[in-house]
Amino acid sequence: MNPVYYLYLAALLFTIGAAGVLIRRNAIVVFMCIELMLNACNLAFVTFSRMHGNLDGQIIAFFTMVVAAAEVVVGLAIIVSIFRTRHSASVDDASLMKL
């Protein structure tokens, strides 16, 4: 089997995640979809690392994970505070920033 299939899988997962971001209204689920997209990218990086025979791709994936962790912390905090004030986790309800 050619490892390039991992890349196809990554593309597929990324696309599914993107579609999820567009379709779902629950902010937490939207966030999970973003995590899914990040993971898909990580898979691609790891595969590239194997392809090129060096560890740089893995390093990038590692940093992605760290950034994702930071992002999750802040993002969930935002969701919690929005939920506390608006009693809703729907991203469509937070639509005041418009003309």
């Binding site: 567009l22 209204r25 991203v91 639509s95 418009k98 003309l99």
Partner: peptide, 17 residues
């Protein structure tokens, strides 16, 4: 153009994608 500015994050996400 402001018609595009719906305030819905998901609309923006569609545009980004």
């Amino acid at each position: 153009l402001r018609q595009l500015q719906t305030g819905f994050v998901r609309s923006y996400a569609v545009q980004m994608l």
